Computed example of a mutant assay.
Amino acid sequence: MSKSAHHTPNSVLPSHSTIVPSGTSGNRNTSEQSFFEETQLPLSILDDYKSAASETEYEISENTRRVYTSSFSIFNRYCLEHGLSPLPADPRSVISFIGHQKESIQQSSGAQLSRQTLTSRLAAIRYHHIKAGFHSPTEHPLVIRVMRGLSRNKYRKVADYDQQPIMYDELEMLIDVINQHPQPLTRARDKAIIQLGFQGGFRRSELADIQVNHVSFLRNKLKVRLPYSKSNQQGQREWKDLPQTETLAAFDAVKEWIEISKIKQGHLFRSISRDGSQIRPYSVSDATNRKINLTSMQTKEPRLNKNSGFLRGDDIYQMIKKYCLRAGLSPEFYGAHSLRSGCVTQLHENDKDHLYIMARTGHTDPRSLRHYLKPKD
């Protein structure tokens, strides 16, 4: 067999001989940065390489990828306006970007961007640098000092407030509004979303990802399996047991939605036609139908996006905002996260201990609950 059948040119597979690219400052020993590199790699491993490279698609969540792309585009525009290199970027460029962003005024609130927003934008810069094989300028000591000082600056006017919890009273108000909807399909679906989101303390992305086969109706409780969540990104076994005896339990609402929608498999919460008379066609693309960029070890979106007919996290967010407005609850202070924070607060009001609440919400650190728990009346 000819040599060309056994070996691929060096340009076929990426050459990543060092972690830190040439030109990066620092006193690190070059030998510690180097990896062994074959002169040529056999063509027989190309399919194996593609298979492994495709897994980088799941390195971060789809929502995080979208946020990082949007945030980095803002940084990219700033650099281009001032003749700076966005990738790789000089730490001083990042510091200048922070200075520009921290003075930006939000049109909706008239306040400056919060530290959380700025931190998210720095995380995007870091992600894109690491993805491209560069050392992140966000790790420069002066950048860290600037952000540390920003977090302690009490004189900045920022619109930084928590969403108010939706508890029994607010939940009843939302259900009353939903019950006024003229279409049975929309009523059944939206009540199931609201009650399940509240009782299970779900994040909006978790609600959107629930599949029909994740739901089990037992004798006196609804059991919902979560293959993945924000605190469980390695696919460990996780589920929520939701007692039917709790006030405004989701058991009957979810069961009614499944019966009226006649959904047998796939995503639990589907899109409904504009007139509310029928469920839209449902389709999910094959995750393997993706083009691999071998040079950057990243996967590209399929040419034709066949994902349709089910709700996303943003759809649930907008839906809850809409019902809060109709119920007289200010959408400025209530949102999808209000269901999760309301679950924690209501269970605390019901004298449940921290371990019980953590089992319900999926929190892994008791200290995280202190952000949610409100003083009892």
Rank of each mutant, 00 (worst) to 15 (best):
K3T: 11
S4Y: 12
N10T: 13
S11E: 14
V12F: 07
P21N: 08
N27Y: 09
R28C: 02
R28H: 12
N29S: 13
E32G: 00
Q33R: 09
Q40W: 08
L46Y: 03
L46I: 14
S51H: 12
A53Q: 09
N63V: 07
T64R: 04
R65M: 10
T69L: 12
S70T: 13
S70Y: 14
F75K: 04
S85P: 02
L87H: 00
P91W: 07
S93E: 03
V94T: 02
F97K: 05
K102P: 01
S104C: 11
S104E: 15
S108Q: 14
G110F: 10
Q112L: 13
Q116L: 09
Y127T: 03
H128F: 15
A132R: 08
P137R: 00
E139M: 12
V143I: 05
V143D: 00
V146D: 03
V146F: 11
R148N: 12
Y155I: 10
D160H: 13
D160Y: 07
D162G: 04
D162N: 12
P165M: 08
E170K: 15
E172F: 04
M173D: 09
D176Q: 13
L185V: 08
R187M: 12
R187P: 04
A188M: 05
R189Y: 04
R189P: 01
R189E: 03
I194W: 00
Q195I: 04
G200R: 00
A208S: 08
D209C: 05
N213Q: 14
V215K: 07
P227Y: 06
S231C: 05
S231K: 14
N232I: 05
E238C: 08
P243L: 06
Q244K: 15
E246G: 04
A250R: 00
S261E: 11
G266Q: 07
G266A: 08
G266N: 07
D275I: 09
G276K: 09
S277H: 09
Q278L: 06
Q278H: 13
I279M: 09
P281G: 07
V284P: 00
D286K: 14
D286P: 01
N289G: 02
K291C: 06
I292G: 01
I292Y: 01
S296I: 08
M297V: 09
E301A: 14
P302T: 06
R303T: 14
S308R: 15
G309Y: 04
R312C: 09
I316F: 01
I320C: 03
C324T: 11
C324W: 01
R326A: 14
F333W: 12
A336G: 10
S338W: 06
L339M: 12
T345Y: 03
Q346V: 02
L347S: 01
H354Y: 11
Y356W: 11
G362T: 05
G362A: 06
H371I: 13
L373R: 13
K376L: 12
K376C: 02
